[in-house]
Computed example of a mutant assay.
Amino acid sequence: MDLNELYFRQQISLARAAGAASVEARYAHRELANGYGRRIEEAQAAARQPLREGIEA
């Protein structure tokens, strides 16, 4: 899954959390958004890694 899709899914999850009818649904959608956020951070870190290796060499 590329970054654009992760960002999209994160935003959809946040919107669904905001409009959730129950506390449980709100929590579930926020957890999904948090998971997408972690995957975004991991993808960004992985993308920066080759740059750091080039600087350190």
Rank of each mutant, 00 (worst) to 15 (best):
M1L: 08
M1V: 04
M1Q: 08
D2F: 02
D2P: 09
L3Y: 09
L3C: 07
E5N: 08
E5S: 14
E5I: 05
L6K: 04
Y7K: 11
F8N: 10
F8W: 07
R9S: 05
Q10L: 13
Q11R: 15
I12P: 07
I12A: 12
S13N: 12
L14W: 09
A15R: 15
A15N: 15
R16Y: 12
R16P: 04
R16N: 15
R16K: 15
A17S: 13
A18G: 02
G19K: 10
A20H: 02
A20F: 03
A20W: 05
A20M: 05
A20L: 05
A21N: 10
S22G: 07
S22E: 05
E24L: 09
E24K: 09
Y27F: 10
Y27E: 15
Y27A: 15
Y27Q: 15
A28S: 13
R30W: 05
E31K: 04
E31G: 01
L32G: 00
L32S: 01
A33M: 08
A33C: 08
N34I: 03
G35E: 07
Y36I: 02
Y36E: 04
R38N: 04
I40L: 03
E41I: 02
E42N: 06
E42V: 13
E42K: 09
A43F: 07
Q44P: 00
A45D: 11
A45L: 11
A45V: 08
A46V: 08
A47P: 05
R48N: 05
R48V: 03
Q49R: 14
Q49K: 12
Q49W: 14
P50C: 08
L51I: 09
R52L: 14
E53A: 10
E53R: 15
E53C: 02
E53K: 12
G54K: 14
E56T: 05
E56F: 11
A57P: 03
